[in-house]
């Protein structure tokens, strides 16, 4: 009887020890992680963690990884530098027995701080419909794209004439608009503005195709000088210097051509003439007038 009781007691002790060994780790783990659903980029916060003992804390973000040993039962401090980039973050907590729990939270972009502004093209002919396109991407100070709608103001300041503006709401972080070029050549500044953030770009409005191209002939002995009127487009804007004008002379010696650039608004060339000659002028694909020179002027 005594031997049976002693044996039973030993068995009980062994069983209790076994149960204790099984339960203790569970008591030690008890690490629950509660994270906010959404955090603003660059905003420090804390994660309350329950439990006791030591654990390994991991934070895995789009461009950042943290691994450190923490004490359970106190709040985990997340620095602002840990959550600068927008996206999904994962928090993993592994206790001494290597059992891990995890949670995810989202970091959203902060307030607007940068605009990536595209203005196209950099040179555009005057008075052309839907020829200027502007697109602005809105970023926060950490260059996260701000996906919530925001109002971007596009202010247009032409070289001459009154300026105007147009407000466009962003969609998925992008605001874009299209406009006609103004009738006058020159520098046009377009500024995209949102709150305190501004970004300016400049485009050059240039004369369109030559219009009403005319030349006159001035004789001097056996030479004739051909000179165009100031070369302008149909809106009266002068074609820039350097634009090539082609003069062609046809006479009994054959055909002669000279491609010469406009200088100070006009193009000028000299030909020798021997007998009747027909001279024409062109600028790009635009033809001008023709003059006939008979050699006896």
């Amino acid at each position: 009887m005594q031997r049976t009781a002693h044996h039973d007691f030993a068995r009980c002790k062994r069983l209790a020890a076994f149960v204790l060994l099984c339960v203790l780790p569970a008591w030690a783990r008890a690490a629950e992680v509660h994270v906010p659903a959404v955090v603003e980029a660059g905003q420090a916060f804390s994660i309350p963690v329950q439990g006791s003992g030591q654990a390994t804390f991991y934070l895995v973000g789009p461009d950042h990884v943290v691994k450190r040993t923490v004490s359970l039962g106190s709040d985990l401090q997340i620095q602002s530098s840990d959550v600068r980039t927008a996206g999904r973050y994962q928090v993993i907590l592994c206790d001494a027995s290597s059992s891990c729990t995890s949670a995810t939270f989202e970091v959203k972009a902060a307030q607007p701080a940068h605009l990536s502004f595209f203005l196209h093209p950099s040179r555009v002919p005057v008075s052309t419909r839907d020829s200027i396109d502007a697109a602005a991407f809105v970023f926060d100070q950490y260059f996260n794209l701000i996906l919530t709608p925001a109002a971007v103001d596009f202010r247009i300041t032409p070289a001459s004439g009154a300026g105007f503006s147009r407000e466009v709401s962003t969609r998925r972080g992008v605001a874009w608009m299209r406009m006609d070029s103004t009738p006058h050549e020159g520098r046009v500044q377009v500024t995209a503005a949102l709150d305190n953030v501004e970004e300016a770009r400049v485009i050059q409005q240039v004369a369109a195709e030559a219009c009403g191209l005319r030349m006159k002939a001035v004789a001097s002995g056996s030479m004739v000088t051909l000179e165009t009127d100031p070369v302008r487009d149909c809106s009266g804007n002068a074609l820039p210097d350097g634009t090539v004008v082609s003069f062609t002379k046809v006479d009994k010696a054959g055909k002669s051509t000279v491609d010469t650039p406009i200088k100070k608004g006009i193009a000028r060339v000299q030909f020798g003439v021997d007998g009747r000659a027909q001279i024409s002028v062109a600028c790009g694909v635009v033809l001008g007038n023709e003059v006939v020179v008979n050699g006896k002027l």
Binding site: F118, H120, A135, W176
Partner: peptide, 14 residues
Amino acid sequence: AVFYSTDGSAMQLL
């Protein structure tokens, strides 16, 4: 594809 700039320099996609 949700946005394609007119000059073809950027495309935004989901």
